[in-house]
Design a protein around this nucleic acid. Structure first.
Lengths: 224, 224
DNA sequence: AGGTGGCGTCAAGGTCGCGTCAAGACGGGC
DNA sequence: GCCCGTCTTGACGCGACCTTGACGCCACCT
């Protein structure tokens, strides 16, 4: 998960930031002064730093410089000072963005997303890996022993539904409705045929399924 | 020298920007509307784009999206709109920074420096190379065995969409929507014709496609 | 022990989608 | 107004995929 270090000495603002970031599924660390911020950043390097310049112990620009001494982590600066010289100082010290208080939370979040986006060189596609094969949902690709596996559209669709619910039981009705439509609730023979074909293409020993497991009378389950 | 493309329809502001940037020894190119901006960016790729959102011909966010389609160049947006939703839209579309008018020139220059600084270490070429042919997305050129290949506009557009998603499956609907528009969702025969023509022009053995692969019933895939 | 229902396997038939070709429609340049 | 390149449209053959039915097996129930 993406780690964000929030540095702010105002308890109310700090709390608001933490709540909003956690709600967006960020892993949030906090600090209330520059010294602890630098210590936390060193011991547990974050993917991004949100830094309020008005700190009790040291000048915010020094914190930026302190971080830039060894880390290339993106830094988004918060400040009450609107003077463009303050902005120039902070940006030239190594900050990546400068947001003036009061600010809108949605704007800050968008700026954080932008800063994270350019820091991430390649957006890794969500790929499901087992010891036997890998499934790349974005690229619609299945590989086994490094070689791509040819799947028919229906085979892929069945596999996709199972893989999107790793470890969870998918009932026959769910599968049939999702792949063939609501009118095919009871055509469980379709499932038998296609699950068998998937096993033949993916399982090391199709007779003894390890990844595509049958739950008799109920449905199927993908075991990662 | 560092090239900067400045896009603004206000002659006074454009002039001020150009003068200040040239004074800092930047190589400055200009455009007064979105269409020419995209054309200039394609024919002579800049290292950074300064983009005023209030353009006469198209929405500024569309220009951002148009650039982001093939280029990872940093984009600093200028706008008179202070609403945080405008900022969120532009940033999420791919802009790197958002500066509200009126702004201080020194602040803008500092933000430009910051944007250039973090973009510096990664110069990814917009050229896709396979063992059979090369595609230059920026220059709109395809070469095979060193010789340029003649493509019609539609052929190029289809190829471009596929090449922008190397290794990934592009569904028929995606392709049709992107090239012909949302109304052509189901004209899959267009794809059959144009993919065949591309294969004839690019594949070593058109009957056995190696780079432009069909995924039966789903779409096509470019294999790098 | 016999019966039953569900699952896995296989093969065959019919349908559908893809590749191919060619002719007509369209539009821009001269 | 003409000409050429490009786009659209239709027809056709072939192969792959989906559907369907039959059969054997196993587990569980009676």
């Amino acid at each position: 998960m993406t780690r964000i270090l929030v540095v702010d000495d105002d308890p109310a603002l700090l709390r608001a930031l933490v709540i909003n970031l956690r709600a967006r599924h960020f892993d949030v660390d906090t600090a209330v002064d520059g010294a602890t911020a630098l210590r936390h950043a060193a011991s547990n390097p974050p993917d991004l730093v949100v830094l309020d310049l008005g700190l009790p112990d040291m000048d915010g620009v020094e914190v930026v410089a302190g971080l830039r001494g060894w880390a290339s982590v993106p830094i988004v600066v918060l400040s009450a000072r609107e003077s463009q010289w303050a902005k120039v100082d902070a940006l030239d010290a190594g900050a990546d963005d400068y947001v003036t208080k009061p600010f809108g939370m949605d704007e800050l979040l968008a700026r954080i997303r932008a800063a994270l986006r350019r820091a991430a060189p390649e957006p890794p596609t969500p790929v499901i890996t087992t010891s036997g094969f890998t499934v790349d949902l974005a690229a619609h690709r299945v590989t086994r022993d490094g070689a791509p596996v040819r799947l028919t559209p229906t085979e892929w669709h069945v596999l996709e539904v199972l893989v999107r619910n790793p470890g969870k039981l998918v009932t026959q009705q769910q599968l049939l409705r999702e792949v063939w439509g609501p009118a095919y609730d009871e055509q469980t023979n379709y499932l038998r045929v296609y699950v068998a074909q998937l096993r033949r293409k993916l399982e090391p020993t199709p007779a003894r399924p390890r990844y595509l497991v049958t739950e008799p009378g109920i449905g199927y389950r993908f075991e990662p």
